Computed example of a mutant assay.
Amino acid sequence: MTPEERPEVPGARLYDAIGGAYTATRRTEPRIAAQIWDALGDARTVLNVGAGTGSYEPADRDVTAVEPSAVMRGQRPAGSAPCVAAAAESLPFGDRCFDAAMAVSTVHHWRDPMAGLREMRRVARRVVVLTFDTDEPGWQDRFWLTRDYLPEFATVLAGFPPLAAMAGAIDARVEPVPVPWDCADGLFEAYWRRPAAYLEDHVRRAMSVWAKVGPEAERRAVRNLGDDLGSGRWAERNGDLAALDAADLGLRLLMA
């Protein structure tokens, strides 16, 4: 990727800024991984687009990674799959040269998600994408954090394509991906039953949402959540969550 091309990759700029905190809390969640790997089927060669540190790359397949952020590439562990500096919208590979292409929690960072999905469809015979559903009316209210403390989350995904459009672009079927209550991967929704975790700075630093909403919204959300945890108001509102082992918070798997 040339310096001239780099400014066109907003996800790379974001993760160059926040990626240093990523490995502290962003680990492979085995139950989500099993769902992704099962969707890969019998694919032997796999392209991982927006690969980050490679958390969900299957160890038993021939993986090639694509990651535009130098910070994220630098944190990939020794012995991990070879990684190419490129953007999803312009994959430097020939047509149908991979059995499968996968993308995990990265599509919302792409400059042009639809173009990136079409590129994945071009270079692979099978496509597996973990993304987020904004089609459902009132989707912002699925998660108490965005409903009660961070309404700005809606603006983060304001220009995000509808799930139906993304699925249609690659002729994919859609499957929900529940988030376990003890999710090992510290993604934004991971601590839905462990609210005090959102008060920890090192936890928030590995979530792109906070960088996007800005420090003022973050400070307000953290302050109000802390107050409600201390007063017991959060528990009054969300006490029913204690009985759940997993929650549907809008994560979806596209499989084509």
Rank of each mutant, 00 (worst) to 15 (best):
D112F: 00
A124T: 04
R121F: 09
R118T: 02
A115T: 03
R111S: 00
C83A: 15
W110T: 02
A101P: 05
R96W: 09
M102H: 07
R125D: 14
C97L: 09
A81N: 07
H109T: 05
H109P: 03
R111Y: 01
T106Y: 02
S105N: 14
A85C: 14
A100Y: 11
D99K: 10
D99G: 10
R121E: 15
M120K: 01
G79T: 14
A115L: 05
V104D: 12
H108Q: 09
D99V: 03
A86G: 12
A115R: 02
A103D: 04
H109S: 06
D99P: 07
A103S: 15
R96P: 06
E119S: 02
E89P: 03
V123W: 01
V104H: 12
P92F: 08
R121L: 15
P82V: 14
T106H: 04
A86F: 03
P92S: 07
A86S: 14
G94K: 08
S80N: 13
A115G: 02
C83N: 12
D95F: 04
H108D: 04
A81G: 09
S105Y: 07
A78S: 13
F93V: 05
H108A: 08
R118N: 01
R122L: 11
D99F: 05
C97A: 12
T106K: 03
